[in-house]
Design a protein around this nucleic acid. Structure first.
Lengths: 114, 114
DNA sequence: GGTGAATGATACGGAGCCGAAACAATTTGC
DNA sequence: GCAAATTGTTTCGGCTCCGTATCATTCACC
């Protein structure tokens, strides 16, 4: 079912969500980090560094570094692929799932208040 | 009229919009910058540095520097308040309006494709 | 088994943003 | 008039991220 969200409403939604994130003093993820995190959680695994770099059209070091920083926050984890030790499989974590659940609820709530 | 946007749909919307922005090689605005820009365009003027800092719950230098960088991009402009020369009035620009119009259309379109 | 390809991580110099403090300009209040 | 308050900017050191190039490890193939 398509969602009807007119352009001005969309901007207000973006503003309201952004304002909540900015006012929370939790460290914000950058757009790249957020998009990477959402890709990992919304698209079917397995996720490799190279695959994620291709999907986001960025270089591999960008993915490596984003995984480093988000790994420190506990939002993702890495595991070597035992079938091909060159690969790194990016895995979800409980903390990451909770983080995105809160984000989804926030967006949903702000949309409801439009 | 409230928009019904369930949490999983909201996450997919965030992902789709973010992915479009990441893949465009236009320089992304940070969340703070984006929220500031939306505040300037969605809330009624006048906008001062101090007022914007209070609204976003950030320090004044954050606003000054964000106005510097977005000013370079032509998205906002500054003018001295002739009634009180200590104040700076933040003003909208055509480029800024177009930028947000494109953003609103993008979000709206991605919502429609959900 | 040895060479070349593939994968991910690292090194390096540079950009940009941050928070806290100090600063210049202007206004207010006495 | 002048001290104190207000407003916005700048400075400082520090941190994070970036893009490119290079590196270490592993696999594929003959």
């Amino acid at each position: 079912m398509p969602i009807s969200l007119e352009s001005p409403q969309a901007l207000k939604l973006w503003h309201d969500v952004g304002l909540t994130q900015v006012k929370d003093d939790e460290p914000d993820l950058s757009i790249r980090q957020m998009t990477l995190l959402l890709t990992i959680y919304l698209e079917p695994p397995p996720h490799t560094v190279r695959g994620l770099a291709a999907k986001l059209a960025v270089s591999k070091p960008v993915i490596t570094r984003a995984l480093d920083s988000m790994g420190k926050l506990g939002l993702v984890s890495r595991r070597r692929d035992q079938a091909d030790l060159r690969n790194v499989l990016v895995q979800r974590t409980v903390a990451g799932a909770l983080f995105l659940e809160r984000l989804g609820d926030l967006v949903s709530k702000k949309a409801e208040l439009l």
